[in-house]
Design a protein around this nucleic acid. Structure first.
Lengths: 202, 202
DNA sequence: CCGCTCCGTGAACAATGTTCAAAAAAGTTC
DNA sequence: GAACTTTTTTGAACATTGTTCACGGAGCGG
């Protein structure tokens, strides 16, 4: 009654995800994974390669989840007939904020993972998925005076994403117990509101 | 002819700094530090505690350098009689961008370090120094319609800092060889210009 | 039942952070 | 300067972790 390879892979991924969620990236240890997944140490290597590969797989999964959450929010807004740019951007930012809240440990591990190896191969698995997030924002920006200047919209979308990202991560680092949530929200509110006003005044 | 403790400490800090600069946080290994600093493994522990502490010391040093760079830019702008808010914010952002460029490996290590341990003691050594950076920006925002509403200025300053921070770090991750610099600059330009216009239109 | 292949296993290895008993150095007293 | 005490340095030894690989069992065709 041994698991087939796909089942074992899923077991390992799940175990690894739980471990990160509980103890951060540092808890992602081969022996712990093997034990939790019910396989041997060697099998972990047979199935997923090394730990870095495993961590990257989890990160890809996480980014895909975030992408789906963003797409879902975008679709909901369209269905609800929401057209206000500010409102839509705030809703997307809120989706992101909620996502980070729900997956704090995994998300931190993802960021730490990226920054840990400077000269490593360009993380295209990361960038490809980021592009999709940019696109969600760029679509919203269609309805601004940026009009259909693709290049400027691209810049604006990336800037907006990175800005929100910076706010959220900084707030989470800042304080764990206090109200980082409302702090984040107020900063995001200021950022989005002022940017939209600035765009309208352009 | 043994080093006194302060000299040894400096030697160790320098060695550690060089190691990070060359090989990232992963290269910060006790034996390598000891060898480079010309002391024994045990002495590293006697003098700096463990390597987490050592890494934190380097991060503090780095943050202080950034603070000094910001203060210097701020002073230069004042001496030159520059009053335009947009110009001043761009100059500060540029200072930050240049700093990250010059200290890329150390800065990455600092970020990775922060995110690596979620529930660790609140990093007040980090926040205290961040406050100083916020203050530099908040001072510039005095000359905007935000007026002297301290609370709103505080929110705005943090949002601005975090936004620029997000843009810079994301750009650096994105591509190492291509022109992340001009990409960052364009995003920052969009962000600051639009925000300032939005503030004026408020 | 034999031989063959495939795959999981976990003991063994290598690298790394950390400790601590012993040695070396520095300081103190006479 | 000698004898003794205190402080500091040292590096071998230990614990933990990622990684490898020779062994053995499970399935299968004949």
């Amino acid at each position: 009654m041994t698991l087939n390879r796909d089942d074992a892979k899923r077991q390992i991924m799940d175990a690894a995800g739980e471990l990160i969620e509980q103890g951060g990236a540092a808890a992602l240890q081969v022996r712990a994974i093997a034990k939790k997944a019910g396989v041997s140490v060697g099998s972990v290597y047979n199935i997923v390669g090394d730990i870095e590969t495993l961590h990257r797989m989890i990160n890809v999964q996480l980014l895909d989840e975030l992408g789906m959450a963003g797409t879902a929010t975008s679709a909901r807004l369209r269905e609800d007939g929401v057209t206000d740019v500010r409102e839509r951007l705030l809703a997307l930012a809120d989706t992101y904020l909620g996502f980070v809240e729900r997956n704090y440990a995994k998300w931190s591990a993802l960021l730490a993972f990226n920054r840990a190896r400077p000269t490593a191969d360009l993380p295209d698995w990361y960038m490809v998925r980021l592009e999709m997030l940019f696109d969600i924002i760029a679509e919203v920006l269609m309805d601004t005076p940026l009009g259909d200047d693709d290049e400027r919209r691209r810049i604006a979308a990336r800037a907006l994403w990175s800005a929100v990202h910076g706010i959220v991560t900084n707030s989470f680092i800042g304080s764990f117990s206090t109200s980082h949530e409302s702090e984040s929200r107020r900063q995001i509110d200021f950022l989005v509101s002022t940017l939209v006003r600035g765009l309208a005044a352009g």
